[in-house]
C-alpha cells in the first residue's frame, strides 16, 4: 500500500492573516502524515507559533517538522518548537522518528540545515572566524542529519530539512545565492544513508523536483513553489530501500 506524505514549508505565519487551519481542513483525507519543512513562522515568536499550533489542531494525521531560519530569527527556536510539540507535532533537530502507516514503517530524520554551497561554488573552512563558523554550521548540521538517518530502521526513509541538499530544486533562484540556500553536505548525508526521498523548503523561487548527487528524489515544498497549502508525495514502499540494500551488499 502506498504511503501518502503531505508536505509544506515556508508558510511564514504571522499573528494575523490567512487561516491555514481552513486550508489544511481536508488534509486528512489526502495524506497519512504531514511534514513541515521549516519557516513555519514569520519571525520566530511564540505568538506566531501559537497561530501555527491552532492550525494544526484540526490535523489528525501525525505531523513531523523541522524549524527554518525564520523560526530562529528572534532567538526563541526552542520555544517555537515546544509550542508545536504541545500541539502534537514531532519537531526534529538532529533526530528521527518512525511512524507506522498501516504496517509500513516511515522513518523521518530532520535538521534545519544550513547554507554553504554546492560543488564548484562551496565555502571552505578557511580564513576569517566568521567564514569558519558559517562552514562549521553546515558541516555539523549535515553530520547531525547523517547520525539521525543512521539510527532509523524503516521501510521508507525520509530526510527532512529546511535548507536544500542539492542544486536541482534551486533552479529558478539566482545562482549567486545558492550558497545561502543549501549545501552539498546535506546531500552527502542523504545519499550516505540510502534515503528514499528528501524534502526541503527555503528556496521560494526554486523548482519542485530535483535529485541529490546520488540520485535521491528531492522535493522543494516551499509554499510559494507549490502555489498550494501542501503537496502530496505518494510513495510506493516496494520501490524503497534499494539504496540501503546496495550499501549492505557492498
Amino acid at each position: 500500500m502506498s504511503v501518502r506524505i503531505a508536505a509544506v514549508g515556508d508558510i511564514h505565519v504571522g499573528t494575523s492573516g490567512t487561516d491555514l487551519g481552513e486550508l489544511w481542513s481536508s488534509l486528512d483525507a489526502h495524506a497519512d502524515l504531514l511534514l513541515l519543512a521549516g519557516d513555519l513562522t514569520k519571525c520566530g515568536t511564540v505568538e506566531e507559533a501559537e497561530v501555527v499550533a491552532r492550525a494544526l489542531a484540526g490535523v489528525r494525521v501525525p505531523v513531523v517538522g523541522v524549524l527554518g531560519n525564520h523560526d530562529v530569527h528572534t532567538g526563541h527556536g526552542a520555544a517555537v518548537a515546544a509550542v508545536l510539540e504541545q500541539a502534537g507535532a514531532t519537531m526534529l533537530e538532529g533526530a528521527g522518528c518512525t511512524i507506522d502507516v498501516a504496517g509500513t514503517r516511515v522513518g523521518v530524520a530532520g535538521v534545519k540545515g544550513f547554507g554553504g554551497g554546492f560543488p564548484g561554488s562551496s565555502c571552505a573552512d578557511f580564513g576569517e572566524p566568521e567564514m569558519k563558523a558559517f562552514v562549521h554550521a553546515a558541516r555539523s548540521s549535515a553530520a547531525a542529519l547523517a547520525g539521525a538517518l543512521a539510527q532509523l530502521d524503516a521501510d521508507v526513509l525520509v530526510a527532512l530539512m529546511h535548507y536544500a541538499p542539492c542544486r536541482g530544486t534551486l533552479v529558478g533562484e539566482p545562482e549567486g545565492i545558492h550558497a545561502f540556500l543549501g549545501c552539498y553536505q546535506l546531500g552527502e548525508a542523504v545519499d550516505g544513508a540510502g534515503a528514499d526521498l528528501a524534502v526541503h523548503g527555503h528556496a521560494h523561487a526554486g523548482s519542485r523536483r530535483g535529485a541529490t548527487e546520488g540520485g535521491v528524489p528531492t522535493f522543494n515544498v516551499a509554499r510559494p513553489v507549490l502555489a498550494a497549502p501542501y503537496t502530496v508525495l505518494t510513495v510506493d514502499p516496494k520501490r524503497c530501500g534499494g539504496r540501503r540494500d546496495e550499501a549492505v551488499t557492498q
Binding site: R209, R223, L226, V232, L233, T234
Partner: peptide, 10 residues
C-alpha cells in the same frame, strides 16, 4: 497560492 495540492509519485 491556495490551489489544489500538487501530487508527486515517488
Amino acid at each position: 497560492g491556495s490551489g489544489p495540492p500538487p501530487e508527486e509519485l515517488v
